[in-house]
Nucleic acid binder design. Structure first.
Lengths: 239, 239
DNA sequence: GGGGAGAGATGCCGC
DNA sequence: GCGGCATTTCTCCCC
């Protein structure tokens, strides 16, 4: 079987491998799974990471990080066995449609804008987004209080805890804010600390819980320097 | 350029495509990103989903779900432009190393065991895992109280709320449990409701917060029927 | 379609 | 290593 020989050879090299195959897949590790026969794309990277993709959907149906791989042949079928720690993955190869391997060179890192951290940066520079009388004091306060996005105070001298969310504010965001405020109250022995949730939108239940606890909502969106441009005009190289 | 022609042809078919290319990538949508030149593997699936993988790591560096794609040629370079809703992705193709396309057939669904739901099922069948005097009443209670994994009562007639986590119990798990218990107390007008967090292990801070709130921890692991077997003996077809 | 929560989550950063 | 938390989270389920 030509394809199988190619695959074996590639597994003993330092190349990335991609192949198409009809296969059955078994996984045992943090959980256990079985995937009946079907045609999939398998990607094995240079660090041993293996990803199996079905022909639709964005998430791999099976995967393993930094594993070791070997082909085991029994009777008339071949099995690709992958191991990593206590986890194992077995791909029963029913038919290999193609195999391609190559050593890839890529040291580039993604430059991303619009994260929650960027929101906090923006608020530090433009405190009026939170309140006209808000003065930020510190960012990423990672002491015993937890990881507070932005900590500040208002004109009355009250401490203000700001939690940022880049998308929807939900119940979990409110309990997170509540945890920070309670912990600070307890640790500092202060009774009145304001809590503010800053996000582009918020669910109804989250808003209610926020208000029940005396916290506040501010509509703030993550910075997105191209958002006002016509995206059809976007060109590579403008970054 | 042979490879580019092959790619164009494949984009007009209903095939999955995988190709290797040196490229620069720009994304604008929910956030914005730029990835400088490097060699990557690009996967375009039959539903239009596109994934770009660097040669290491398990997560795609750029991606888009169910997008439409076209090749735009300007001067001496070609750009693969992908669109989905308000999002866009541009891949500047500096060099295409290989292209492979094929229509894949796969209707199989993953059969998975050991989820949080399986933990709840197990507790329903074996309540003594929680407490000798625990009697489960209902599962997945998704009414006004929230989505409670297992609801039951003890011999004294107290309501007991059980929250399961398949891995580590953390602060967020405790606040989730707290939210359910508080909501039930408020809705039912009952003062004493027990809250139990069931998970294989728990962080120190989570344990402390749990105890501060009068809740309890039970060490329970998700069911894993093969876990006691010697995994090296594992064979496909045993599922 | 929104809301809520799990995931074999993964990845990052800090201690 | 653990802990805490964001993620272009993604996915599923239920209302």
């Amino acid at each position: 079987m030509e394809a199988l020989a190619t695959l074996k050879l590639a597994l003993n090299s330092n190349k990335s491998i991609v192949f198409g195959a009809e296969c059955e897949i078994l996984y045992s590790g943090r959980a256990e799974s079985f995937l009946p026969a079907g045609e999939r794309i398998v990607l094995i990277k240079q660090d041993g990471t293996i990803l199996i993709h079905q022909p639709t959907g964005s998430v791999p149906i099976n995967y393993m990080k930094e594993a070791t791989h070997k082909i085991v042949e029994k009777e008339d079928v071949s099995i690709l066995k992958s191991n990593s720690g206590d986890e194992l993955l077995e791909i029963l190869l029913l038919k290999i449609h193609f195999v391609h391997s190559k050593q890839f060179e890529d040291g580039a890192k993604l430059q991303l804008q619009g994260s929650e951290k960027d929101m906090a940066d923006m608020i530090m520079k433009e405190p009026k987004l939170i309140d006209p009388d808000f003065t930020p004091v510190s960012q990423e306060e990672q002491t015993k209080y937890g990881f507070i996005d932005v900590l500040g105070k208002d004109k009355k001298g009250n401490l203000v805890v700001v939690e940022c969310k880049r998308y929807n504010g939900d119940l979990s965001a409110v309990t997170q804010l509540r945890r920070y405020v309670e912990k600070m109250k307890e640790t500092l022995g202060v009774k009145s600390i304001r809590g503010i949730l800053a996000c582009p939108k918020i669910t109804g239940n989250a808003k209610k819980m926020l208000e029940d606890w005396g916290f506040e909502y501010r509509q703030v969106s993550p910075p997105n320097f191209m958002e006002k441009k016509d995206k059809s005009q976007l060109r590579l190289g403008e970054f």
